[in-house]
Write a protein that binds this DNA or RNA. Structure first.
Lengths: 140, 140
DNA sequence: TCTGTATACTTGCATATACAAATATGATTA
DNA sequence: TAATCATATTTGTATATGCAAGTATACAGA
């Protein structure tokens, strides 16, 4: 069903939830080759770009709470893609060799994801929408 | 942190997830007077407007899967706000008297929610964004 | 130095949601 | 009519996520 058939789509709640779910589905497809969910994949990309990054900082980058980061890292540690080190109250997250070896695959999935939605929406359209959504998010 | 500080906010995945989470928070606040989560509240509103609606149809309206509707209805039945009747393979969902008595409160929360975000974003701005997001969702 | 406060992270718990499988019913066709 | 297929719903299970509380560490002031 097109959302324009719904009575509730006039509402920001529905529009944003529905869009997020659709986008998530597309993202899940795009990252399937890595065996990781989108969140896990983005965290991997972040840690590869900033090895040693701390959970709180990673949470800010990814706009997730520290506790969610902990859970994501736990799973990626189980998969031997990341390791945590502790110094005092600080934790650093590093990629393992296995994690590093994944970098290219992750990048190509990111590229595919970007291309699959910008093919549907148009590159201009989609980047404008992304910018607008960020503005909205910041204001709220 | 403003999302414009993040490297990943260029990506539709983050933008849409982050926006949805922010909007959800606002919605949770708005519906607090009812003691219901936003999804439950919207389902109540739908059933009040279309008494006897079937789960699948409700799912289409609310853009949720049938199984999610089942779970939502279960909780609303526990609270004695809805009841289900079964005829053959079909299920109909009706508001109870207690549910009907809630209608005004629900509507006023809906109004408050709408006003709280359109106060922040501007009425034009927000309705344009909602329309754009719906278009995006339909295309994906 | 000790004490109180602030920070960083983790854990326990709760929630919303989906998918896939199970169940029950209905419809169609051989 | 019996068998097959389709539809509507529910249930089992898994996931992502957050909040609040707990824990461990650091820091600052008396």
């Amino acid at each position: 069903m097109k959302s324009c058939d719904s009575t509730y789509n006039k509402c920001l709640y529905f529009s944003s939830q529905a869009l997020a779910r659709k986008v998530e589905k597309l993202a899940i497809e795009s990252w399937k080759p890595t065996g990781l969910s989108p969140s896990h994949a983005y965290l991997m990309l972040l840690v590869l770009r900033e090895p040693g990054i701390q959970p709180t900082l990673a949470g800010e980058q990814l706009q997730l709470t520290p506790s969610t980061i902990t859970r994501l890292v736990e799973k990626l540690e189980e998969k031997k893609l990341l390791i945590r080190t502790n110094e005092g109250k600080l934790t650093n997250i590093y990629p393992t060799p296995k994690g590093k070896a994944m970098q290219e695959l992750l990048n190509s999935c990111l590229k595919n994801f970007y291309e699959s939605y910008s093919a549907i929406l148009g590159k201009e359209n989609s980047s404008r929408m992304v910018a607008d959504m960020n503005t909205l998010t910041d204001k709220l």
